[in-house]
């Protein structure tokens, strides 16, 4: 650096502008840009605002009719009621039951679907076998078939699956097993329906990792699982986070499968929420309904906040190559 400064001619700076070009904060371009952004932000934020303030008001205050007014007297009673005492039919233990049902559905579904999809995606990306591309194409087509078509066939599949397993368990003296209408039946359904998109995601991610790493692993004597666990997995945190977010939000927000493949005692939170909001017994408690809805949305929201950065990175990484 010393040489460089010594070599500059001793002329100084000439006349005219110098340094960074000034920018006009109120240029038409900026007004358009920020104006649009602010309007869109309000459009999305306003319903949330209404929900939050309503959930913090008592019923008398709600009846005054001004939905945008902030609560005069903040009360958390609607939240407590929504969680623990709101009634759906004869059950009056609030959303808490649905919450735990959802958790018991969510955890195994997420774990099983991601486990299977990651291994499948890894095999499709790195261990190409005869017909692997065809297999992958079939899997992708599965993602485009509207799943309403499969609702009833799956009822039959689950029922027969239960009968099939029962054939053995009864023979072993373990009694009858049911799959349809149980939590595990729903886990199976969620796992299967998550497969196309998750496999695509993992395949593309693993295909984007340098192929020479895989080759080096093979020369070093690592096998299918050795390369997967020791080399690929430690490099794959972002894509696992993406898969986890997709599955957690997807499964948590699922309503249709929950209604169809389970029974009232094990209804997930979304179904329970619907039942609370839609049950007509006397007056409609808007504040409780709002609180219940917010409670139900809390889990995906938290997941996004905690892992948002990794989510973006993973989506971008998975999209590089395909």
């Amino acid at each position: 650096m010393a040489d460089a400064t010594a070599n500059t001619p001793a002329v100084g700076i000439g006349p005219g502008p110098r340094g960074a070009k000034p920018r006009n904060a109120f240029a038409p371009r900026n007004i358009m840009l920020y104006g649009t952004l602010i309007i869109v932000a309000i459009y999305y934020a306003l319903p949330l605002y209404v929900m939050i303030v309503t959930s913090l008001k008592g019923m008398p205050e709600i009846r005054m009719g001004n939905i945008f007014a902030p609560p005069l007297e903040v009360t958390f009673e609607p939240w407590v009621k929504a969680w623990s005492t709101a009634c759906t039919g004869i059950n009056c233990d609030g959303l808490s039951r649905g919450f735990w049902n959802s958790v018991w559905i969510l955890v195994p579904s997420v774990v099983v679907s991601i486990t299977i999809a990651s291994v499948t995606g890894y095999a499709l990306a790195n261990w190409k076998f005869k017909g692997s591309e065809f297999f992958f194409a079939v899997l992708l087509i599965g993602a485009f078939i509207p799943y309403q078509v499969m609702l009833y066939p799956i009822v039959l599949v689950l029922k027969n699956l239960g009968d099939g397993i029962s054939f053995f368990t009864v023979a072993l003296g373990l009694g009858k097993v049911q799959v349809y209408g149980t939590l595990w039946g729903l886990v199976i359904v969620h796992t299967i329906f998550g497969m196309p998109i998750l496999t695509l995601l993992f395949r593309n991610y693993f295909a984007s990792l340098p192929e020479e790493l895989f080759k080096a692993g093979r020369v070093d004597g690592a096998g299918f699982w050795g390369i997967f666990f020791r080399i690929m997995l430690p490099m794959s945190l972002p894509i696992f986070v993406v898969a986890m977010i997709l599955q957690v939000t997807g499964i948590w927000n699922d309503f249709l499968f929950g209604v169809i493949y389970t029974k009232p005692e094990i209804y997930p939170m979304t179904v329970q929420l619907n039942n609370i909001v839609n049950s007509v017994q006397g007056i409609k408690e808007y504040n409780v309904n709002m609180a219940a809805t917010l409670l139900t949305g809390l889990v995906p929201l938290i997941v996004y906040f905690v892992s948002g950065k990794l989510f973006v990175r993973g989506i971008a990484a998975g999209a590089v190559k395909g």
Binding site: P210, E212, L213, K215, A216, G217, V219, R230, I231, P234, M235
Partner: peptide, 12 residues
Amino acid sequence: GMVFQSYALYPQ
């Protein structure tokens, strides 16, 4: 033993 163009070192 093999040496690759991109080094292919296990990053973790």
